[in-house]
C-alpha cells in the first residue's frame, strides 16, 4: 500500500483487491414473511407470559380502571402523549413508567418502542424498576418480518421481550438486572 493513504482508502483498497471477481450472490428468501396466526392476542399473551412478565387481556372499556389499579401507590413516570395527566418527573425516585408501544410480535412475545408519543424517552423506559406497557390488539403482528416492515429505522428502537434477565451464572436465568425488573403488559382489546 502506498504510504500516506488514509485508513479509509487503504481498507477499501484491500477489500476491493480481496473480493475482485467474487460472484454475485442471489439471496433466497424462502422463509415465512407472512404467517397465519388465528389468535394473535392469545399467542402474544402466552409468549409474553413465558418470559415471566405479567400479562393481562383487558377490554378497552376497562383499560383506564385497570391502569389505575396497576399503578396505585406507585410514583409513575407518564410520558408525553400517553393521554394521562400527572406523573412523576424524577427518574431516580420513580417507581415505574407507563408507555404505549409501536408494534408487538406474537411469535416472540416482544414489544417494540420507537419512543414516539406516549412511549417515553429511552431513559424513561429504562431507569424505573416497573414498566407497564399498553398494547392495542391491532398493534400485534404475527412474526418478526411483519414487525420489521412496520418500523421506522430513523427512530431509536427498543425491543423488549420480558423483564431484564441474565443467565451469566451457571446458565441460571435470573430476572431483573439493570433494566426494569417487572414488566407488565396490558393487551387492550
Amino acid at each position: 500500500m502506498a504510504s500516506g493513504m488514509s485508513a479509509r482508502e487503504e481498507i477499501l483498497a484491500k477489500v476491493r483487491a480481496a473480493v475482485a471477481g467474487a460472484p454475485t450472490v442471489e439471496i433466497p428468501r424462502g422463509y415465512r414473511t407472512r404467517r397465519q396466526v388465528d389468535d394473535l392476542v392469545g399467542l402474544f399473551a402466552e409468549r409474553v407470559g413465558d418470559y415471566r412478565a405479567i400479562v393481562r387481556v383487558v377490554p378497552s372499556a376497562e383499560l383506564g380502571a385497570t391502569i389505575d389499579a396497576c399503578v396505585h401507590g406507585r410514583r409513575m413516570v407518564v410520558p408525553d402523549g400517553f393521554g394521562r395527566d400527572g406523573g412523576w418527573d424524577d427518574l431516580d425516585t420513580a417507581d415505574g413508567v407507563m408507555t404505549h408501544c409501536a408494534v408487538a410480535i406474537a411469535e416472540t412475545g416482544t414489544i417494540v418502542l420507537d419512543h414516539g408519543p406516549g412511549q417515553g424517552t429511552r431513559a424513561q423506559t429504562l431507569v424505573p424498576d416497573y414498566h407497564l406497557c399498553v398494547v392495542l390488539a391491532d398493534q400485534i403482528v404475527p412474526g418478526v418480518p411483519e414487525a420489521v416492515e412496520r418500523l421506522d429505522p430513523s427512530r431509536p428502537l427498543t425491543w423488549i421481550s420480558g423483564p431484564s434477565a441474565t443467565s451469566d451464572i451457571e446458565l441460571n436465568r435470573v430476572e431483573g438486572v439493570h433494566g426494569p425488573r417487572t414488566l407488565e403488559v396490558l393487551i387492550s382489546t
Binding site: Y51, I160, S164, G179
Partner: peptide, 9 residues
C-alpha cells in the same frame, strides 16, 4: 425466542 433487549439507533 428473543433476547430481553435489543437497541437500535
Amino acid at each position: 425466542r428473543m433476547n430481553p433487549y435489543t437497541s437500535m439507533w
